[in-house]
Design a protein around this nucleic acid. Structure first.
Lengths: 355, 355
DNA sequence: TTGTAAGCGTTATCAT
DNA sequence: ATGATAACGCTTACAA
């Protein structure tokens, strides 16, 4: 046991990391053997394997993913870009992604674009430099130019959009059937006997808001009701915006008897305004929102809303990524996964006691 | 322009990444020059530098952070471990961290422990393997054994705790002054004339809940009120738990006239139960919570609550990390950053019209 | 079953 | 101001 320090390089000192070379030297075998033992290669003696594993544990060996990734040309890092991480929707989607990813051995790098294209472009650069295995993104509100996404494709990095898309259909994406969601909510209001249903519409260049509005129109049509442009309000989905839109609608010569909002905060704003004016919900005006945020169950009356399956969306996005990786060489058929929305009916829209 | 394909290696084909070697070959200079030009080294001719940068842009050169990190032994990755990412608090802290980190050129790897130590241990392994430059963590509820954090220290990786700590003070941490928060809320209830203030207490092995409770006791003492054990309820901070605790308190021979809850959901549960029984808030029972969640402003009446400065906490945690890096060689003095809580007084606790 | 050695893309040391 | 070359820690043909 005196014959230790015989190697050319000094063994690791105090805080320095222990590498495969260290294990090899200590055990008197080659690095190949170490590598094989650790990666559970088939051609490896069970005895040596045990010895390697034991020593690795004893010396607190920590594999260096960076080095492996560099050599293999493939990392176990996954890039995710969201406009911001706060708020139930994106947080839940990220939760879903991270859970699925970590199960498959991937680590998630999170980036926020802050609803700013410039930032989004920088995020892409960063992720490509980090050599991520794939990028999952929900585009910012201000994204109109898509060259930075082209770049990702050029680098051969799998790209999956979720919820918010870029224009054009030749992309891989996981989306909610927003149109169906808009239809379900509006149809429900009509079934409750409402006949002048207003709509708080979001920015129409975003697929999600465009589709929710379309679903609203579909529902009206199914009841043979001609859409009334004065009932369709431009809304940025904030609480204040919702209150303002509601106030404007009340000033109409012929106000609505229901509102379907493309977002929950706005419908809460409307509710607060209505209550402040002594207008009853749902008796005088029925309300329905979109996103099924936590606040819908705190408001009084509780708010009817369309659930976006946030977590499933995250899982689906990751699964689509893995499918893209698997289909690497294959003919590149773009895939779209569409999730079905679910309407949660609550007091804000229930005019009749009939279930 | 015909004399291109003269190199030993084929230039990059379609989707293959372009490396420094490619730039060097194309420009007829050495890799060293390329590296220097790109990293803005001082000894580099302005003309060559321009040429390199131009070519890099033209060929869409993307630096490989992995290779750089491997060589330098220092990555630009930062590991963050939270129990879960949903919910205003952690999402906001992560937001704060990511914003500060990306400004400083760091990418954030997000991990969720799911309130499970085993997962937390795995997260640590993953992050160490990813060669992160530092780890920021808020421990899981079930963490009682701290050896995995010791390992981080052994690997020489800076470690910063935020909000939830491990026992012992020889750690770097950013925390809220929870005791002060508990004091402020309780004191406020006392100032409103309440004399039997109950407390929904969280799990006492967690620093945050222990401190909030201590602040509650401090406030009682400042009013010379002896604590009544029957008014201190064990609560897991869920909506249901809050309702149950409230119900139990109402069954007391001498019920409370106020409740300070260590969490917001629980106080909402209490509010709902009180309303269902026709007990007025705040006239009969005043309420105050902790965290200043969004729901506090949706509930009716709006809920008084202690704000946790989530975003500042994230920023501070990142700043502490950078300070640790800067003080690498220096004597390792552990640092604790303490943030001051802020009480938001709302209708649920306002018995008097006096401001 | 095990060993040798080349190479991933970068940076750093030493020359020139 | 620029170049040649070794090294970071790992994987993987190719040999033995």
């Amino acid at each position: 046991m005196a014959a230790r320090r015989t190697s050319t390089k000094e063994p690791n000192a105090a805080g320095s990391p222990v590498s495969m070379a260290d294990l090899a030297r200590e055990l008197g075998v080659s690095m190949t053997t170490i590598s094989r033992a650790l990666s559970d290669h088939h051609s490896i003696g069970p005895a040596t394997k045990q010895a390697v594993l034991r020593l690795a544990k004893k010396l607190n060996y920590q594999p260096n993913h960076l080095a492996a990734a560099l050599r293999k040309g493939k990392s176990k890092l996954l890039g995710v870009i969201v406009p911001y991480i706060e708020g139930r929707f994106f947080a839940s989607v990220v939760h879903g992604i991270e859970t699925a990813a970590s199960k498959a051995g991937f680590s998630v790098i999170i980036c926020q674009s802050g609803e700013d294209v410039a930032h989004e472009r920088k995020n892409i650069e960063t992720l490509l430099s980090a050599q991520v295995a794939g990028i999952l993104v929900s585009v910012s509100l201000t994204t109109q130019d898509f060259r930075h996404f082209e770049k990702v494709r050029k680098h051969g990095v799998p790209l999956v959009f979720f919820d918010r898309l870029v224009e054009g259909d030749n992309v891989n994406a996981v989306v909610l059937n927003d149109r169906e969601g808009g239809y379900l909510a509006t149809r429900h209001l009509l079934e409750q006997g409402c006949r002048r249903v207003a709509h708080f519409a979001g920015m129409q260049h975003l697929n999600i808001y465009k589709n929710r509005r379309q679903g609203y129109l579909d529902a009206l049509q199914s009841y043979d009701i001609a859409p009334d442009e004065s009932l369709i309000m431009d809304c940025n989905m904030s609480l204040e915006s919702g209150a303002n839109c509601m106030a404007a609608l009340l000033d109409l010569p012929n106000p609505p008897d229901a509102v379907f909002s493309a977002g929950d905060s706005a419908v809460l704003g409307a509710l607060q305004l209505l209550k402040s004016r002594g207008i009853r919900v749902p008796q005088d005006i029925a309300l329905a929102g979109f996103s099924n945020e936590a606040l819908t169950q705190v408001a009084e009356p509780m708010l009817t809303s369309v659930d976006q399956r946030c977590e499933e969306m995250g899982q689906a996005a990751f699964r689509l990524f893995t499918e893209l990786v698997a289909a690497e060489g294959t003919a590149f058929s773009q895939r779209q996964v569409v999730l079905q929305p679910q309407l949660f009916v609550r007091a804000s829209s229930l005019r009749q006691d009939t279930v």
